[in-house]
Design a protein around this nucleic acid. Structure first.
Length: 190
DNA sequence: CTTAGGATCGCCT
DNA sequence: GGCGATCCTAAGC
């Protein structure tokens, strides 16, 4: 059974879903913006949480696609992923940066006032989750239902890709994707 | 501009 | 006991 949302086939491989997500608009309770940076992770991928099989933390990665996988990073930050591929496959896409569009005041209030720079509001998985109010309470929720909305991209986009950030295994795999020329990336592509 | 350290949780060996 | 799919602040050049 096919799982299509925002014009994206979530049964596709994670690197494919990660590419197609660039330019779509993600809102949580009406707050969010355009996705400008993603990273793909897969069961066969040593850098992925799913690589060593199911645990309590990564359980939803081994469930149905088009759901969220939210995990705690460094004991401090929350990071938001979309589960993809066939049910039980153990693949996902990390949402790394948004171009803020809706509820910017709300996002600023959730983030530290010292970091009021619009450019840094959702630039990075931890910042993005904080701005959108995403926590463990959102883990495993279907993307097709409130509080989430995912809207198709309005036009074709130019993509860039490169190595993923902050990992120590499979370092050279070019599974980080971005919107070419965006100033809202967590870091530039080289 | 670059680098270093601390915060702090859950899973791993 | 170690090590992250991170971020912030401070200090050095």
């Amino acid at each position: 059974m096919k799982t299509v949302l925002a014009g994206i086939d979530f049964n596709a491989p994670s690197h494919e879903v990660a590419r197609q997500l660039i330019g779509t608009v993600l809102l949580v309770d009406g707050v969010g913006g355009r996705i400008v940076e993603t990273e793909a992770y897969d069961r066969e991928d040593p850098a992925s949480h799913s690589f060593s099989g199911p645990t309590a933390r990564n359980a939803v990665m081994f469930g149905a696609p088009a759901r969220t996988y939210v995990y705690r990073s460094y004991g401090i930050h929350w990071c938001l992923n979309f589960v993809c591929c066939a049910p039980g496959h153990g693949a996902g896409v990390l949402i790394r940066a948004l171009e803020p569009l809706a509820g910017i005041d709300v996002m600023r209030a959730r983030r530290d006032a010292a970091q009021a720079d619009l450019r840094l509001l959702c630039a990075g998985p931890g910042r993005l989750s904080q701005a959108l109010g995403v926590t463990r309470a959102h883990n495993g929720r279907p993307l097709a239902l409130p509080p989430f909305t995912l809207a198709p991209r309005a036009e074709e986009v130019e993509l860039v890709s490169g190595p993923r950030i902050g990992i120590s295994k499979a370092v050279e795999l070019p599974w980080r994707f971005g919107l070419a020329g965006s100033r809202f990336l967590s870091r530039p592509f080289r």
